[in-house]
Amino acid sequence: MNVVACLARVPDTASRIKPGSDGKSPDLEGAQFVVNPYDEFALEEAVKLREAKGSSLLAIHVGPVDFQKELRNALAKGADKAIQLSTTGPLGPAGISKLLAEQIRPLLPATVFLGKQSVDGDVGATGAFLGNELGLPVVSKISTLKIEGDRFSATREVEGGVETIEGALPCIFTAEKGLNEPRRAGLNQIMAAKKKPLTVETKSAPPPLLDVLALELPKDRPAGRMLGEGVGAVAALVTALQNEAKVL
């Protein structure tokens, strides 16, 4: 069984966003870019499956900006080969999954891991679109995964509970935070990764199906009130919650 991990590039979650000059796209000047945090858990789970039984692990990135350092790090952590599909123009889940599917189709049967969503667009549909492209079931937001033979059992948090999902491999999984503890690559692995195959191919993706009309920042909250210091302020808070905010 082949294994695939998909890695996205996102601005760090601490970066400040402002609307760009077109009023539609974010101005990310000065932002630090990182591997999408959820994809780190996806990669770790893919490496674990590769170690347990996989024949080969491919790490894929779709996007326009050089990602070779991050892919090289994925190779050091345990991927066997890596590819960046270098694109121009905006990307949506439909376009990204078409490009991913082109690479994965020749590797089938393959089990694919992605993060549950990228922390920039927050759509969380690439797994579903990829499943449709490849004809594979999709199990999203998993926080545990057990594989025995070609069967799996996964759990995920849903509103007010935990769901168990069972099925057969191959399958597409999207990772929730806490699925595992992503490893760090050791020096020997970093050295060995330099010899592993990493390719960059130029591709054009179908454009997104949504037009962005505007990008704005959330409205400021109305100014609040400091009620004072220490236990002495508690009575004022209870009064305010009861009579002013009326939330009790």
């Binding site: 966003i17 920039d120 667009g121 949504l210 962005v212 704005e216 959330p218």
Partner: peptide, 17 residues
């Protein structure tokens, strides 16, 4: 209208078709 960047910004979107 939908939040992006974990709620640090919002976009207004319309389907092309």
């Amino acid at each position: 209208k939908r939040p992006i960047f974990g709620g640090r910004a919002l976009v207004t979107v319309k389907a092309k078709g």
